[in-house]
Amino acid sequence: MAEEITLSVFRGDRSGGREQEYKIPAVPGMVVLDALHYIQAHQAPDLAVRWNCKAAHCGSCSAEINGSAKLLCKTRVDDYTDEVIHVRPMHTFPVIKDLVTDVSWNYEKLRQIPAFQPAIKAPFTLHQRDVDRIQEFRKCIECFLCQNICHVLRDHSAKDAYWGPRMMIRMAELQMHPLDTADRIDLLKGSAGIGYCNITKCCTVVCPQGINITDNGIIPLKERVADKYFDPLGGLVRKMHK
């Protein structure tokens, strides 16, 4: 691998900014986050980047690397041979500074989702086959890369109309919990705006946890909405056979 790496990192704040180049020595196994830490320690101590675990568990270090939405801690520098590594903040959320964006909108939406309402008191009797599909959704690390890449939010700025893939997955997890009693179908069709998703699957592609957001989460939720609103009788039959 190259002995020196060139990174071009967005520097700026709410009022604007531009990319700035840094040259740093390469270390085997280095990830982009390591490179940014090197820059902080030796060249730009105030370079703002959000990170916590550096182990792809926390979902803090989301950014755009050469145009792709990725976790900085999971993206290796040697994936980019002989090219400048451009690092920019997530596009869909307002920049606070450099690579740090304001993701508070996501927390507002999370708060608006009706919580888990189990029918009975724990300990539950639940079989692994019954929880497999919701465990897939609970792998979400809330990196919000799916929200960043969803074209409804990204290109159309339609945050008031559609809550985005992360919220769909959270609702899928709750709706598909065998013991949950709350109903979120009206919310999904209404203000959460599931109809806006037109299944381009960009969210599934960028998910660092490999969650099949569209196929396993959003499409089944769309079917439940359709059952309730457009085929009430069929929906009832299917529900009886659930």
Binding site: A115, A122, P123, T125, L126, H127, Q135, H177
Partner: peptide
């Protein structure tokens, strides 16, 4: 731990369906 299950945590299960 059981309280977490009540609040929505989904632990891996035994063949009998317990945590």
């Amino acid at each position: 731990v059981l309280e977490l299950e009540q609040w929505g945590a989904v632990f891996d299960r035994t063949p009998e369906g317990r945590i």
